[in-house]
Structure formats: structure tokens, C-alpha cells
Design a protein around this nucleic acid. Structure first.
Lengths: 338, 338
DNA sequence: CTGAAAGCGCTTACAG
DNA sequence: CTGAAAGCGCTTACAG
């Protein structure tokens, strides 16, 4: 059983292949093909289950309809679900995704960009790591469409979509303050990544706005690539040496995971003895406690927005404007304790 | 900057494109092209950084050099690292991978096969779910190369590579028995998947071989899609109602994760009060205890073997023989407790 | 060894 | 609206 080609459809319809092609590509009107004929051709296409030969189209048009997705670490649940959402959104718009992780290594990032370029992707979706500025600039210079996600690189005029990190922490902090917690600690990563800085800013400014003094000893920074044991130890000691802490805001899901273990070690009850909020969820939380409140990123929305911007860039000569910087609203999720 | 084509190289070398193509495809000898000329052409290719246009090659040869990988659940660490290894192995042999998960749903599996077929993959790597027999048979009938991984479907004569599940559990059981544990429990999934049945068989037969009676009350089966809370509860109750248990073999890493939480709840010390072995590792284990012994699958070996079989099928008219059923030796990893 | 040519399955500019 | 044709970048059978 040979696959049907556009030529076969043309023969069946008694027209020349060009006509079928025009109908297929929505240029029927433009080419003044009668509605009647167009409808007949569409029916034949449908009946035959004809699908254009992707490779042939690519060769002819120079477009692969493949987008490259570079995330920081695909084994991290957050990036995994982001990748999944991106894939679904892209697929529904007729694009495919090739993806790979930088493992936070700019060298690897450079290599991946080269690989994707060789695979002739039409555009790039990137969660950038500091150090990738030049590579991303190169793409832009070569007129390759790029959209950043999850974070951006200050100084690069590239479209991006990410959660409003500042607003997310503010939302969580106000929830904790509303519950009556007074000495709220903030556990974050020791990194200059923009999204982490914005989260820290959210913590500090919400306190200030409520007339509460920011105590630097209540902000604990965990080295970026700590081993779990070390991170747990550090958080444990932090909790022990600040016995007046009555709530903790964990700035990432991995920190939350380590933090929950530390809290368990300390024998503290959540939420009676210590309130906990975490930015991003993790399956594992349910192993520890039902009583953790989550700041949830609208991952599907972020994915869809990023994909739509990229495709606009690709298809509509959309240009970068102030509207190319999209912040999505995070959500506060209170886990029921049943 | 336009990309260089085969034609450009031919012009530079003062030969006709065919000649370059022959050199490129290792047919220089066969076409009696002098070593000298071939070398000159190779040098030009190198110097120009020429890369064949993948799309054009595909269109001409009808081969995409893309393999479809269908795993059960890409968010599971085991499948994620399998996918990564597969990707690396394939890439080094000049193939790319498109992957997707069935989420253990045969309907989804069918849909994915259709999708991959439409994307014109050259071959399929599948971790089959019961219920996919027909779809896989269809592929075979249509002469599509298929290699199964991680498990196989009894009754389907398809090549596969997987770990020797029976030997893995035997290895672990003998380790526990050697340490002097007497009442070893086995916690597994309530499923008919072949790899799980083989693990159970490994448990039972090792006991028998050592003259120890198999006590069915020491085998606990957790429903396939339990929520973490429920699984933890079930294991906890199992431990409580069998106080003579002095060691537990967890048949999967997820079971181990739930099990460790249950053991912690029960206040039992590992390994003094209870020995623990788990089939497959999980990052999270380190949060609970360093003293867990792992039966490790040689994932890279499995990946490489599967890829090589598939490519042989594709390129060398390799046919299915007894040697197409490959079992890889698992490894016992004892975590140091420091 | 070389050359000329066909063709993979499409899209699109051109002439009518 | 229709037809004839070129061409995307390759590979390969054919004739010399």
C-alpha cells in the first residue's frame, strides 16, 4: 500500500497538482478556485486520508516546522511538565518540538544550539542560563526567531514569557501574614538568576510594605548545586539556630523538598508549629505532609503564550515590542489536609 | 551566508556532484574513484564544514533517520534516563529520536504509533503495555522494524533487550540471606506485566533454593495506580501486621520510595532493624537513608543494545533469531553509609 | 572513473 | 481559473 500523493488526489479530481496544492494551503480564494471545486478537492483529500509529505514540503519551502526547545534540566519535574505543555501546544499548531537540556552549562548550551541549527529548526524556545547571552545574540543576528521562557537575560531584547515571580512571592507572603505568622524565613538559592532575584525581592518588599523589618538572618541561601544531604543539613541548622521562625517560604520545589525533610527532622508540626509555602509543586510533597501551600505557575499558559509568540515571529513578521514581555499570574494552591 | 551544498563542493573539486555523493556515502571504492581524488574531496568537505541537507537526503532515500521511542511514562526517572541513553546512542550512530509516553494506556499507545508513522520514523523502540499486541503486530506486518525494551509481550516474536529481572532479584535475595536476614518480605505491584512476574519468581525461587518456605503473607501487592498516600498506608499496615519481617525487597523504585516512608513511620532503623533492597534507584532515597542497597539495571547497555539491534534490522536485513532476545546482567550496588 | 539525467513530493512564479 | 515548468538538495541507475 503506497501512500497517496498530491498527484494522486489531483488525478482523482481531474485537476492539475497545483490546484490541489492551492486548496491545501488555503490559497483557493486567492487563486480564484471556485468554492465548488475547492470543496470537491477537500472531500477527496479527506476521503483518501491524504497527508502532505512533510519532508517534501520542508525541502521545497525551507521550513521544517520543527522548533528547538532548550531547557535547563529535563529531569526536573517543572521543566518536564513545561516541555510536555510546549509539545502539546506546538503540536496543535502544526509544529513539532526537539528538546534537550543544558544541565545549566553554557558550553553545553552552545553545543545544543549548534546541533539544533544543524537540524534546521525554524525557531528556538530557551530557558537561558547565564553565559548564553552571546549564543542567543548570535541567533538573533542570524535572524532566527527566539523566545525565552521561565527567566530572561537582562540586556537582551528578546521576547519572553514567564511567571510573575515577584507577584507569586507577594501572594504567598500575604497569605502567611494573613494567617498570623510573624517571623517568616525565606530559603532560596545562592544564584544570580533573575527569577530567583525577583522572588527574593518579592519577599523583602512584601515585608516592608507591611511595616515589618527585613532580617537578613532569616534569609538562607543554599549553594546552587548542593547535594541533597548538604542542603538538608544546611536548612536544618538554619532552623535550629533561628528558633523564632514560625513560617518558611521555599523559593523552589527542590528547596521545599529538602526543607520538608529538615522540618521533619526538627520534629515541627505543619502548619501548627511552622507554616510552609513553596514556589512550584513536587509530587514528593505528599509523602511528607498534606499541609503545604503552593505557589503554582500556570505552565500551560506560559507554554501556549511562548509558542504563539514564536510562531508569530515565524509566520507573521511579528516584531519585538513591549508586548513581547509577558508575565503570567501565579496561583495560590492550598492543599486540603484530608 | 548561504549554506554550502554538495554541488558547491563538486564545483570546488572540479568534479560532478555524483562523485562527491559517492565519496560521502562510502562508495568511493565501489565506484573506482582513486584514493587520491577521494581524499581531496574529503578534505574539501571538511574545510567547508559541509553537512548533507538532511531533508533532501530523506526525500530522496525515503529514510528519515528518525527512530520513534515509546516509553511507558517519561516522568518516571527510570524511563527518563533510558530515553536519555537511547538518544545518546542513536545520535552517535547518526539517528535521531522522537519520543512520547503511553502513560500505560493502550489507546494512547495506538495513537502514538499512528503519529510516529505519520512522522515517517524508520523504526520503533517500545516499552510495551499489555494491550498493544495488535498494534505492534501491525507494525511487523507492515515490515516496520520494532525492538522492545524493559519488558516483552509473550507470544510476540519481536526482538527485545531487557534486564534479567529474575537474576536481579536473585542477586538481591542472596545478598540479604547472606547478611543473615530470615524473614524477607517482597513488596511488588499488582500487575501482570512480565517483568514484575519475573521479579516475583526470582523472590520465590531463591527462597526455595535455599530451603526456605515461601510465605504468601510476606508478599504484598500494591495496586498499579495507587496514590502515594494509599501506597504508604498499605505498606505501613503490611509492616505492622507482620512484625517478624526483618528485611524487605521492593520490586520498583517507586515502591521503595513509599516503603522508605512507611519504614520511617514505623520507626525502624535501616539496616539494623530492617534490611532494604530496591530494584532501580531513585534520587529521593538519599533523603531517607544512605543504607539502601540497589539492584541497578545497566541502562546504557540496554539502550545501546536495543539501538544496535534496531539499526541492524534497518540497514542490514538482520532477521529475528534467538539472539534477538537479549538479557542484560543487573548489578548490586551497596550504598556506603557515609 | 565521468557525465547527463531522472526523480523523491511538493510549492510557486509565470503565461495564458 | 488551468497548465507547464522549475527547483528545493540530494542519490543512483545508466551509458560511456
Amino acid at each position: 500500500m503506497k501512500r497517496v500523493s498530491l498527484k494522486d488526489i489531483a488525478k482523482q479530481a481531474g485537476v492539475v497538482p497545483s490546484t490541489v496544492s492551492f486548496v491545501l494551503n488555503g490559497k483557493a480564494k486567492q487563486m480564484r478556485i471556485s468554492d465548488e471545486l475547492a470543496e470537491k478537492i477537500r472531500a477527496l483529500i479527506e476521503a483518501a486520508g491524504y497527508q502532505p509529505h512533510h519532508t517534501a514540503v520542508s525541502l521545497r519551502t525551507g521550513k521544517t516546522k520543527i522548533l528547538g526547545l532548550i531547557v535547563e534540566d529535563i529531569s526536573n519535574v517543572f521543566f518536564a511538565s513545561l516541555a510536555k505543555s510546549i509539545e502539546d501546544a506546538a503540536y496543535s499548531l502544526g509544529y513539532r518540538i526537539v528538546y534537550c537540556s543544558t544541565e545549566n552549562d553554557p558550553e553545553k548550551g552552545k553545543e545544543l544550539i549548534r546541533m539544533l541549527t544543524h537540524q534546521q529548526v525554524d525557531g528556538y524556545l530557551i530557558t537561558p542560563t547565564p553565559g548564553m547571552e552571546n549564543d542567543i545574540n548570535n541567533l538573533i543576528k542570524n535572524n532566527k526567531p527566539v523566545v525565552l521562557m521561565d527567566r530572561f537575560l537582562p540586556g537582551l531584547d528578546v521576547p519572553f514569557t514567564l511567571v510573575d515571580n515577584y507577584a507569586g512571592v507577594k501572594l504567598g507572603m500575604e497569605h502567611l501574614l494573613g494567617k498570623g505568622y510573624k517571623n517568616i524565613a525565606f530559603v532560596t538559592l545562592d544564584t544570580q538568576q533573575i527569577q530567583m532575584l525577583q522572588r527574593e525581592k518579592g519577599y523583602k518588599e512584601t515585608l516592608k510594605r507591611h511595616g515589618i523589618e527585613v532580617r537578613n538572618e532569616l534569609i538562607e541561601k543554599i549553594p546552587f548545586k548542593s547535594r541533597p544531604e548538604d542542603a538538608i543539613k544546611q536548612v536544618s541548622e538554619f532552623i535550629k539556630s533561628n528558633p523564632d521562625i514560625d513560617a518558611i517560604f521555599f523559593a523552589t520545589n527542590y528547596l521545599g523538598m529538602y526543607g520538608l525533610e529538615s522540618i521533619k527532622k526538627a520534629g515541627l508540626k505543619i502548619p501548627e508549629e511552622i507554616g510552609v509555602i513553596c514556589f512550584d509543586d513536587h509530587d514528593i510533597f505528599r509523602l511528607f505532609t498534606p499541609a503545604i501551600t503552593i505557589i503554582r505557575q500556570p505552565i500551560e499558559e506560559i507554554a501556549r503564550s511562548a509558542i504563539e509568540m514564536l510562531i508569530s515571529l515565524l509566520e507573521n513578521n511579528y516584531t519585538v515590542t513591549a508586548e513581547s514581555h509577558v508575565y503570567k499570574k501565579p496561583e495560590l494552591v492550598i492543599r486540603s489536609s484530608t
